[in-house]
Amino acid sequence: MKSRSDPSPRSRKGDAGNAEPRRQTANFSRLLKVEDVPETGIEVSLRADEAECAAIARSDGLVAVAKLEADLDVTRQAGMRFNVSGVLRAQVVQTCVVSLDPFETKIRADIDVDFASAVEAAKLSGVVGTEIDAGDGWADSFGVKRDPPDPIIDGRIDLGALVEEFLVLSLDPYPRKPGASFDETGFSNNPLEKVSPFAVLKKLKEGS
């Protein structure tokens, strides 16, 4: 079984500073009312059920999702700002781009996302790509830039949708089963030319 670990939080912002669009209907939804978060914060453990795992697999191009769970800490910050941090763990079945065989992969990824009101989030999204100092509130204690906050919608944060998003970000776009290999020069007249996984798949399909 292949393991994939992403020890550092992933940035989900594009060059223009906008977050990648989320699905309007999440396959894995766990809504948290921000008014229910105490001043000391709250710990939340999530686990996708069988139906949710099947829906995630269908929409995200996976053979199966055997497990998806996360342990999160939701903390209050200055004003009506919140931070969601924690770890997701998943076990998925992907299709090898070389052999086309299904194989299991274990995934572990860190989550660290700020949330703010929709108005404030929209205002701060314009500063991505520019220098942000600690006085702006969106740099860590070492002065490292952070992504601007995601918007709080209708007073709620969808923790499940956030976990699913980070799962998708952690997937290998060209999954390869351990031990699977191909002759990169076998598909081209140029022995120095490497072939993309898409070209390999095309050749495999033509030969089937």
Rank of each mutant, 00 (worst) to 15 (best):
V97M: 10
Y174C: 10
K106Y: 02
A118T: 12
K67E: 15
G41Y: 10
V163G: 04
R30Q: 11
G61A: 12
K33A: 14
G186D: 07
E50K: 13
E206D: 15
L124R: 11
A122I: 04
T130F: 10
D147T: 03
L167A: 07
S85C: 08
D154I: 00
F182L: 07
K145A: 15
E131P: 01
F142H: 13
S170I: 05
A54W: 02
L171I: 12
S99P: 02
S125W: 01
R89V: 05
G135M: 08
D36A: 14
F198V: 15
R47N: 08
S3D: 14
V113P: 02
E39M: 07
K203C: 00
A48N: 04
R146I: 01
F103R: 09
L62R: 05
F166A: 01
E131A: 12
V74H: 03
V97L: 10
D158A: 06
V195G: 02
G86A: 06
R76K: 15
P38F: 09
A116W: 02
Q94R: 09
E131N: 08
E131M: 10
E193M: 08
S170V: 09
E43F: 04
L88R: 04
R81Y: 00
P197A: 05
G207N: 14
G179C: 08
P148F: 05
G79Y: 11
Q91I: 10
K123N: 09
E206N: 12
T25W: 00
L204S: 15
D136G: 15
V200F: 01
A55S: 13
K194D: 09
L68R: 04
G179T: 10
L46P: 01
E165W: 07
A70M: 01
R22A: 13
R76G: 06
E39C: 00
Y174F: 15
P149R: 07
K106L: 04
A109W: 01
G155I: 08
G79F: 10
E35L: 02
I107G: 01
V119T: 11
E69V: 00
S141K: 11
E193G: 00
G79M: 12
S170N: 07
R4E: 12
N190S: 13
M80V: 08
L162H: 06
G137I: 06
M1G: 11
I42S: 14
R146Y: 00
D73R: 13
D101Y: 01
R108Y: 00
D183F: 01
P7R: 04
A16Q: 13
S99N: 05
S170H: 05
R58F: 02
R23L: 10
A54G: 08
S99M: 05
P151F: 06
R12M: 07
R10L: 15
N189A: 11
V168Q: 08
V113Y: 03
R176Q: 15
P102Q: 07
I56S: 03
S45K: 13
V63E: 12
A180E: 13
N18I: 09
